[in-house]
């Protein structure tokens, strides 16, 4: 009696959804040069998916503990603006600038972690608050022109520009994504910390009984998210070759949506980094494909929203059916 495990089924479904979407856009938006289904565009899709996927690693950790992080977009902007300040006002080398950027990201994550794990502010409210805090800090340190108006800060350091490119079309951001996703998956599946994340998310009580430090597990997940946010910010500013206060506006929902599409339950205790990465590819395909449909950009938002609702409803009904089946099976079979 070989049945696919539920997790494997879920993985197949996310991949299936991604393929269906690709096929859909191939039919609707065509293939060939300049069209949706061309090697250049598909690489572009993967490139677009990279930053959400990188940050998705941290966000996945957080969601597995049944938390959430709404501050990733703002933290990204803060990291970017910090680096812009160093770029504009100091002569520090490129590497130090990136290092400080990463430290700022870690600090944001640590602050989130303290607010949630130590001060016991509910995840949603806590990160909603830090979301406005980080955005405001970004504005406070934003660089102004002679008239005191906030300007977009160009960052054209050669090494920075280099970071936005790649080996041919194999962008460095894609490489970084692959490396970080793999490390994330390994941490999740092959270390005690990863096991602890699932335990905390599935049952705090059981985790405590097994001697797991629940608060620390949560806190570290937010710090890791801070790190991935910083990496995402470095690549985003490198690609834009500038830093603005608007970076990451409304971004925070991207990695969360990616995680949900990829089978990470918001209730915690399930899903993995690979799933979120597939979800990020799904979301990037969606954005890109809709753009390639040659219709008013406005419709893109409508279609995006409808597809997300459709996916979520599909996911909920599928899960309800599986749960029911598993329950019936359990009641009927008992032990084999």
């Amino acid at each position: 009696m070989k049945r696919l495990s539920q997790t494997a089924m879920r993985r197949l479904i996310s991949i299936g959804m991604l393929l269906v979407l690709v096929a859909l856009f191939t039919i609707l938006a065509g293939f060939g040069q300049g069209k949706f289904f061309s090697s250049a565009n598909l690489i572009e899709v993967v490139r677009d998916a990279s930053v959400p996927a990188i940050i998705g690693v941290g966000v996945t950790f957080v969601i597995i503990t049944s938390g959430i992080d709404l501050s990733t977009g703002s933290a990204m902007a803060l990291v970017g603006m910090t680096m812009a300040n160093i770029y504009e006002y100091t002569l520090l080398p490129f590497k130090v600038m990136v290092l400080i950027g990463i430290l700022v990201g870690l600090a944001c994550g640590l602050f989130n972690g303290i607010v949630i794990a130590k001060l016991h502010v509910p995840e949603f409210i806590g990160t909603l608050a830090t979301m406005s805090i980080y955005r405001a800090l970004t504005y406070i340190i934003a660089i102004k022109d002679a008239n005191g108006v906030i300007k977009s800060q160009p960052m054209t350091h050669s090494q920075y520009v280099w970071l936005g490119t790649g080996v041919g079309k194999f962008y460095y951001v894609i490489m970084a994504m692959i490396v970080i996703v793999l490390i994330g998956q390994i941490v999740l599946k092959y270390t005690r910390y990863g096991t602890n994340l699932y335990s905390v998310g599935a049952s705090r009580k059981a985790a405590t009984l097994s001697g797991i430090n629940v608060e620390m597990t949560q806190l570290i997940a937010y710090v890791i998210t801070g790190f991935t946010v910083a990496v995402g910010a470095v690549f985003t500013t490198a690609r834009l070759q500038s830093a603005t206060t608007a970076i990451g506006t409304d971004f925070e929902f991207n990695p969360i949506a990616a995680a949900v599409v990829g089978g990470v339950a918001l209730s915690g205790g399930s899903g993995d980094v690979i799933g979120t990465t597939i979800g990020a590819l799904f979301m990037a395909t969606l954005e890109n494909g809709v753009r390639k449909l040659d219709m008013n950009t406005s419709y893109q938002y409508v279609i995006k929203g409808i597809i997300i609702i459709a996916v979520v409803i599909f996911d909920a009904t599928y899960k309800a059916r599986m749960d029911k089946k598993a329950k019936e099976q359990g009641a009927k079979e008992g032990l084999e």
């Binding site: 997790t7 096991t195 699932y198 335990s199 599935a202 009580k205 059981a206 009984l209 097994s210 205790g269």
Partner: peptide, 10 residues
């Protein structure tokens, strides 16, 4: 107090 997403050994 078992953790459903983990394996038996875990």
């Amino acid at each position: 107090s078992v953790i459903p997403p983990l394996t038996v050994a875990q």
